[in-house]
Each structure stands twice: as structure tokens, then as C-alpha cells.
Amino acid sequence: MADDKEILKEIWEGKIPICFKLDENEWRSSEPEEIYLMVSRQSYFPLILDKVQRHFAEFVSQTRKNNKIWLDYQGTSLKWHYPIGLLYDLYANEGPESQSNILWILNVHFDEFPQDLLQCESKEVIESFFLSTLKEADALKHKGKIINEMQRKDHLQLWNGVKSDKFEQFWSMNRKLMETSEGQGFISIPFRIYQLDKPFIQKLFEPVNESGQTRTLKDLLDFIFGEDVSNYKLVLIQGVQPSLDTPIQWLSEHLSYPDNFLHICVK
């Protein structure tokens, strides 16, 4: 079980400074001021956009001000059901040595909602999507045993911890989902690998090999990419560029997002 509280807390407290700008094609008259927010990596955009919508609503036409807003970064529409930290790492993060991407500048839209984006009609939709992904992760780790033994109030505690950005509230329950038998890892590692302009990759991958040896992040990348792995220079998880020798079980316990998946960006 993940027991390095300082590491878990530091990952949880990761924030991204974001500048939201109303798209210039939607100004009703003059250009409105931008709005700046420090946003949790663990959150989802629909949970934090109410303030943004209120800020810009008076600057768009009356017929559009109550529309569902959406975001783009340099022309790419952003999927609301991906964690914010994942979206930043995939599109804007050039690695820990780069200083050119400290502030993330996003365009806000009230009109022409993209057909390739899922609709998010309410915060209940986000909760449902989150819990569905959490259940999938536990199916891979424990065959669903832990999540299915939880009650509805336990599921709500996990979700409310994410929604309210409360570390203790979330992790006091999430620890159960990170439990393993003595000396054993998860049955499989819940992971998804993301690359620009490609569908994410998800396969079954056990944390130990047939000889009982611990598998590492490098083993996972070799498993997915084979000889092509040398073409990729940057691997990011939670904004961190971990050593390729890090055991994949440790990464799963400590660097997974709240949905219990390792979301890995490869560039």
C-alpha cells in the first residue's frame, strides 16, 4: 500500500497557473480582461469553469452567455473528461528543464461546441465518468473486489475529495484501493499512454514478470513501443519525468491520478 504520505501530498498539491482568454471571435465589443487561476492537476475543467463563465458572460451575445463553454489550446479543443494535469502535460509541458511554458494560456468559447467533444451537461456527469474509470482501475488491480465492497458513501467521499481538493478526505478512502497482499503487487497496472494526435494506448501489464522480477517503467515502454521507444525523449507522469528504472508498481501507488490510472504522456 502507498505509505509515503509526503510524496502523495506533494503530487496532490500540484497546481497549474492558467490564463483564460475569451476567443477574439466571440467578443461582443471590446476585448475583456483575462482571468487567472491556479488550478489543481487532479481536477477536471467543468469543476472550475463556473467562475470563468461568469467572468466572460457579459462580453458575449445574450443568446450565447448561458451556453456550455469549452476550451482550446493553440487550436486544439480540450477534452473535459481528462484530468487537467494530463491535458497540460500532453499539450504544453516540455519537461522540467523548460521555462517557456510556466503559464498555460487557454481560449474560452461560448459558441460552436465541437462535435468531437463529449457533452458535459452537469457535474453529475463528471462524477459518473470518474467513478466508472475508478471501477475499471480496480477491476485491473483487484478484479473489482475493493471498489465493490465500498458503499455509496465511500464512493462519494472519494469524489468529494477530488471536487473539493481535500487530500485527507480523498486518501483516507483511496488507501483501500492501493492495498496489496504481503509482498504482492496489483494483478495488473491501470495505465494509459498518450501521444499527440493519437488514441491512448491501454493494455494488460503485470507489475512482475514470469520470473517474479519487478517490472519498471522502461519495461512498460518497451512492452508498448518495442524498438521504437528510443524515438521518445520525454515521459511525463503528473508533471514529473520519473527514472525509467522506477518500479511500475511504485508509480501506480504514488503517481496515479485520483481515478487510479497512471496517465503517461510520451513525446
Rank of each mutant, 00 (worst) to 15 (best):
K9Y: 14
K9G: 02
E10H: 10
W12K: 03
C19W: 03
C19F: 10
D23I: 05
E24W: 02
N25D: 08
N25F: 06
N25K: 07
E26P: 00
S29M: 09
S30I: 00
S30W: 08
Y44G: 02
I48L: 15
L49E: 11
D50P: 01
F56C: 08
V60E: 02
T63L: 07
Q74V: 14
S77K: 11
S77D: 15
S77N: 10
Y82G: 03
I84V: 09
I84Q: 07
L87P: 13
N93D: 13
E97C: 11
S98Y: 10
Q99N: 14
I105G: 10
D111F: 06
E112P: 04
P114T: 12
P114I: 10
Q115P: 09
E124H: 08
I126D: 08
I126Q: 01
S132K: 13
D138L: 04
A139E: 13
K141V: 05
K141M: 09
M150F: 13
M150I: 02
K153N: 07
H155L: 13
Q157H: 15
D165G: 05
K166E: 14
E168Q: 06
M173Q: 12
M173L: 07
N174E: 14
G185M: 07
P190R: 05
P190A: 05
P190G: 04
R192L: 04
Y194V: 03
D197W: 09
K203E: 08
F205H: 05
F205P: 01
F205M: 01
P207Q: 03
E210W: 02
S211Q: 11
R215K: 15
R215C: 01
L220H: 04
L221G: 09
D222C: 09
E227R: 09
D228M: 03
Q238M: 13
V240H: 07
T246P: 01
P247W: 06
S252V: 14
H254Y: 11
H254F: 11
H254E: 11
L255G: 03
L255F: 12
H263R: 12
V266G: 00
